[in-house]
Every structure is written in C-alpha cells, then in structure tokens.
C-alpha cells in the first residue's frame, strides 16, 4: 500500500516535472526576445528539474539519497537566478535591446 502510494506520487512528480521542462523549451522558442526567453528558462526550467530530482529522491526511499536530492534542488534554486541575472546584465550592458513597449518610456527618467 505504502509502496503503491509512493510509486503513484513519483509518477505524478515525473510527469509534472517533465511537462514543466517541455513548457520551458516551448517558451524559449515562442517568446520574442532574450529577456522573455530568460523568464521561461529560469522559472519553468528550474521547477521542472527540481520536481524530477524530488521524484528521484523520494523513490529511492533512502534518507541519505533524499537529502542529497534536496541539496541538489537547493543548489539549483540558488544558482538559477544568479546565472539569469548575470546573463541579463551582460546582455543589457552590451547593448542588447529589449522588445520595447510604451511602458518603458514612463520610467526612462529614472535611469541613471
């Protein structure tokens, strides 16, 4: 009974995680510019891989392995925003233009 529930939970996590990863991959192709693509990659991608790692950790039914999977998730969640931020900053600094809209004009005065 317990093993069945665990298997079902893992099955759900696996499908959900890979669906998020696929969504991120579709988003990276559909979105119009670099920054919007980064939204898809940094959020849906991170959550997808985290869910898959969580599934692997739970399915092992071993506390040490589960802790390692959690450490992997924590690492992923800590590094994904740092990488996205650095890349966005580099792209902005090197003159990559965003697909602009009128919203930006209202805040142009605030820029340095």
């Amino acid at each position: 009974m317990m093993a069945d529930a665990l298997a079902l939970l893992c099955a759900f996590l696996l499908v959900a995680g890979s669906a998020f990863a696929l969504t991120a991959a579709i988003g990276i192709n559909r979105f119009p510019d670099l920054f919007t693509r980064m939204h898809a990659a940094s959020k849906a991608g991170t959550v997808g891989s985290s869910l898959l790692l969580l599934a692997a950790g739970l399915y092992s039914w071993d506390f040490a392995v589960f802790l390692r999977a959690l450490a992997g998730i924590a690492f992923l969640i800590l590094t994904a925003p740092v990488a996205a931020h650095l890349l966005a900053r580099a792209a902005k600094g090197s003159g990559y233009r965003i697909s602009t809209l009128s919203v930006r004009a209202t805040h142009r005065d605030n820029k340095k």
Partner: peptide, 18 residues
C-alpha cells in the same frame, strides 16, 4: 509562465521597470 507559454495567442507585454 507555463500558462503564458501555452496560450495559443502570445499575449505578453514585456517591460523594463526601475
């Protein structure tokens, strides 16, 4: 983000805000 990606018409309004 998943909803925004999967919507048939791409209905997003990107902006840079300070």
């Amino acid at each position: 983000v998943a909803i925004a990606v999967l919507r048939p018409r791409l209905d997003i309004r990107p902006a840079m805000v300070a």
